[in-house]
Write a protein that binds this DNA or RNA. Structure first.
Lengths: 217, 217
DNA sequence: CAGTAAATAATAATCTTTCGCAAGTCAAGA
DNA sequence: TCTTGACTTGCGAAAGATTATTATTTACTG
């Protein structure tokens, strides 16, 4: 087998280099398509695979559903944002990580990879703006059933429901707010407990008059 | 929102604990199915998601196509075998990794994860036996298309195909061999290149006469 | 410059994960 | 006890990501 430098392959390599790394196959596909509208996604995948086999690029197997590829071959680690999935390089060298010696379960070590997770500057900003507090701790104790303060998310949901005229399904509300349905349904539950919304039909919700007055306040 | 401990959920949790971690959703599904034949794969996925949301289990976002889940919550890292994908725990504590301070690109760090790759003891053995040289360096110089040595996996696949009378799909072969379809299809491709099997119909494969003679040898 | 192996486009297939929905289950209230 | 609403489940189907197939084109070799 021998490699050929086809136009497609060259373009893929060029775009990956240009972007300074960390693209997924289909991001790359979109970029390359601007220059070669007829290129196929499979070609991008195939070439990324081949190029990383021959070590002209590197496959990053970091978290997330899609594989990402990096044009930089030198050893470096990554930091990535838990909010927006942005990925940046990290330049701590091998020297900062002491590999274990005794407790490797008999493995022969061939490499290591350090992933640091965090919040990127932009997402820190975003959260500062929206901040009251994070509503992530979902389960186990009731969500403060009597406290009638609305948090930002709840207010947002309630506003969306106010605009709807009839009873609407939680997924429609989620769509209107532009958030994940899972998160919304939790808010819906909370709002219902507070009496701001009502469920005239199973799985359909409607804002109550209390809800409307609460919104004005 | 409040969680209920249903039988299914309990069973999933129990099996995950029993296995000492690192199972994929469908491995877990297979195990749970022994006790609850009617459980659905979606239920397994749903519960793994929920349980990790409430931090009763941990989602490992390590490399590989499938997500894996861990019943151990304590912070620990992993070592995994590049050959057989087996995963073991690694007990170097946080203390051995110095996090970078100055060059975090403005990120607020929330966590870190170290993955060590290597060869597990079993695979070291295997390679010692099969050793002529690794056939991984695919490109640039010919891949010796004429070298007709079969590795163990290929032999196994070929034998399974020999037992089938008609053309069979790769997933059927995988089932016969009792391995992951993904790994098998790779072997099938290799066998096809060597001329030991043939694909008379799209996605169906059949052993050739060359394949049969190679098996006897 | 022709012959050939490698690469491509297009599409189908595959694998993994998630979603939608109807039906089931359970706890709390009427 | 009966009802209700929230939480779950099973099932089937959809979605998302990647890979395989196959006829055709293309880059390199001789």
């Amino acid at each position: 087998m021998q490699l050929r430098m086809t136009n497609q392959r060259e373009m893929i390599l060029r775009e990956l280099k240009k972007s300074k790394g960390h693209l997924t196959a289909d991001e790359l596909y979109e970029r390359v398509k601007k220059y070669m509208p007829r290129i196929s996604l499979a070609t991008v995948y195939r070439n990324l695979e081949i190029l990383s086999d021959v070590k002209m690029i590197r496959k990053l197997e970091i978290s997330g559903r899609q594989k990402r590829f990096d044009s930089e071959l030198e050893d470096h680690d990554h930091i990535y944002c838990v909010e927006c999935q942005r990925i940046d390089n990290l330049d701590i060298g091998q020297k900062h990580v002491e590999l274990p010696v005794g407790d490797t379960h008999g493995y022969t070590i061939t490499g290591r990879r350090l992933e640091v997770t965090g919040l990127c500057p932009k997402c820190q900003e975003k959260i500062k703006k929206t901040s009251t507090k994070k509503s992530r701790g979902v389960a186990k104790m009731g969500c403060g059933s009597k406290k009638c303060t609305l948090n930002d998310k709840q207010k947002e949901v309630l506003e969306a429901m106010n605009k709807c005229d009839g009873p609407s399904a939680s997924k429609d509300i989620a769509a209107a707010v532009g958030k994940e349905a899972k998160q919304i349904s939790c808010q819906i539950t909370a709002l219902k407990k507070k009496g701001y919304i009502d469920s005239p039909v199973r799985c359909k919700y409607e804002i109550t008059s209390e809800g409307k007055t609460a919104l004005k306040a």
